[in-house]
Amino acid sequence: GRPPQPKSVEDLLDRINLKEHMPTFLFNGYEDLDTFKLLEEEDLDELNIRDPEHRAVLLTAVELLQEYDSN
Score class of each variant (00 low, 15 high):
residue 6 P to V: 11
residue 35 T to E: 10
residue 38 L to D: 11
residue 64 L to W: 14
residue 65 L to Y: 00
residue 11 D to C: 03
residue 13 L to K: 04
residue 30 Y to L: 06
residue 35 T to R: 14
residue 60 T to C: 09
residue 35 T to F: 01
residue 31 E to A: 15
residue 5 Q to D: 03
residue 48 N to D: 13
residue 2 R to L: 10
residue 33 L to H: 03
residue 28 N to D: 02
residue 34 D to A: 11
residue 27 F to L: 15
residue 69 D to V: 00
residue 36 F to M: 09
residue 42 E to N: 12
residue 57 V to S: 15
residue 64 L to H: 15
residue 53 E to G: 10
residue 66 Q to T: 09
residue 64 L to P: 06
residue 71 N to Q: 14
residue 42 E to D: 12
residue 57 V to G: 11
residue 13 L to R: 03
residue 21 H to G: 02
residue 28 N to R: 05
residue 42 E to P: 11
residue 18 L to R: 00
residue 18 L to N: 03
residue 60 T to P: 05
residue 15 R to P: 02
residue 1 G to Q: 14
residue 43 D to Q: 11
residue 11 D to W: 03
residue 57 V to W: 08
residue 49 I to E: 03
residue 28 N to G: 11
residue 5 Q to K: 10
residue 69 D to A: 08
residue 51 D to Q: 09
residue 39 L to I: 13
residue 3 P to M: 13
residue 9 V to T: 04
residue 49 I to Q: 01
residue 21 H to W: 10
residue 2 R to H: 09
residue 37 K to H: 03
residue 39 L to P: 02
residue 16 I to T: 06
residue 44 L to W: 03
residue 62 V to A: 12
residue 34 D to C: 07
residue 2 R to G: 07
residue 36 F to P: 01
residue 68 Y to K: 13
residue 7 K to Y: 06
residue 14 D to G: 10
residue 14 D to S: 11
residue 2 R to Y: 09
residue 3 P to T: 12
residue 65 L to T: 03
residue 55 R to L: 00
residue 56 A to V: 07
residue 51 D to V: 06
residue 39 L to F: 00
residue 71 N to W: 10
residue 45 D to L: 11
residue 19 K to Y: 06
residue 38 L to S: 13
residue 67 E to H: 11
residue 6 P to N: 03
residue 71 N to S: 13
residue 25 F to L: 10
residue 62 V to K: 13
residue 25 F to P: 01
residue 4 P to K: 11
residue 16 I to D: 04
residue 7 K to I: 12
residue 30 Y to E: 07
residue 61 A to K: 04
residue 64 L to S: 15
residue 57 V to D: 14
residue 44 L to S: 01
residue 49 I to A: 00
residue 50 R to F: 12
residue 1 G to A: 12
residue 16 I to A: 08
residue 30 Y to A: 01
residue 66 Q to W: 10
residue 53 E to M: 08
residue 21 H to V: 05
residue 11 D to P: 01
residue 51 D to R: 05
residue 35 T to Q: 13
residue 23 P to E: 15
residue 35 T to M: 09
residue 56 A to C: 10
residue 8 S to Y: 01
residue 37 K to Q: 07
residue 41 E to R: 07
residue 37 K to V: 03
residue 60 T to H: 15
residue 17 N to Y: 01
residue 45 D to E: 10
residue 49 I to S: 01
residue 14 D to A: 11
residue 45 D to A: 05
residue 69 D to E: 13
residue 26 L to F: 11
residue 52 P to D: 08
residue 44 L to E: 03
residue 58 L to P: 07
residue 28 N to F: 08
residue 26 L to K: 13
residue 30 Y to M: 06
residue 47 L to M: 13
residue 7 K to M: 09
residue 26 L to N: 06
residue 27 F to P: 05
residue 33 L to T: 02
residue 5 Q to S: 09
residue 68 Y to E: 15
residue 6 P to A: 08
residue 31 E to L: 09
residue 12 L to V: 07
residue 13 L to V: 00
residue 59 L to K: 10
residue 60 T to D: 15
residue 10 E to C: 07
residue 19 K to T: 13
residue 25 F to K: 03
residue 49 I to C: 04
residue 48 N to T: 01
residue 9 V to E: 01
residue 67 E to A: 12
residue 37 K to N: 03
residue 26 L to A: 11
residue 27 F to H: 15
residue 18 L to T: 04
residue 33 L to C: 01
